[in-house]
Design a protein around this nucleic acid. Sequence first.
DNA 1: CGGTATCCTAGTAGATACTG
DNA 2: CAGTATCTACTAGGATACCG
Lengths: 128, 128
Amino acid sequence: MSIQRVDAATTTELIRPHGCPVMAFQAMISGKYKIRILWDLKDGPRRYSEIRAGLLSGATGTREIAPRVLSRELKALAEAGMIARKDYGLVPPKVEYRLTEAGKGFIPIIAVIRDWGERHLATRPPGG
Amino acid sequence: MSIQRVDAATTTELIRPHGCPVMAFQAMISGKYKIRILWDLKDGPRRYSEIRAGLLSGATGTREIAPRVLSRELKALAEAGMIARKDYGLVPPKVEYRLTEAGKGFIPIIAVIRDWGERHLATRPPGG
DNA sequence: CGGTATCCTAGTAGATACTG
DNA sequence: CAGTATCTACTAGGATACCG
């Protein structure tokens, strides 16, 4: 059949229906930057490059984030209905991402998780 | 150097310190069954095989769960302080897992996530 | 600027066999 | 019973080059 390894990531990675809301949640946040993207957008719309810069500055490590990865996560979040993409149709391009109502409603959930995590999860300061 | 691919999963998979509580949370629940394991344990201690059976019956698909995977997730949850393992030292072996206080405190968080997910996430009934 | 196309590495889950 | 050992398939993430 010569299936040729089409870089599976690019083909499959978006479609994943889940019967359980908790599993759906887990799928929605799966990915290294999704929660941070949502959190960053809580203060208002941001452009692709601004999101990227924000992810670098608050960084987990201070590595580059591959454009491919950011692009994929933004698409998935849009697909999940958490964010909306607005293309201004300009050259050079200008595209903004902002939270949808569902996305805004998720922000308090992140806060709950953060508060609980601070209390119960062993976190180490970067370098500890 | 002949590094030989030592099955990285068996060596690395436990150690992962995170500075951010939300990232720590994400790491803690990462894995296909962790949340469901915690949820299953909310009603009391369970043995390895009982947990396994429970994961099969409520199943996402109705596949087998590899013992290797369950074992790894249980270890990770114990490492994260969410569950405790009790070995009765018998032959044939009897081992029970139960929620720690931190684990018990996580149950309401799951409920919050579930409620939010039901409202805002597109879930499809299995087969839809 | 906002991505896509390719290639690569490492980790995660499954199947199966086997052990104390 | 409660796992470990081994092998394989698939996927997420990173690096880099390039396009409209």
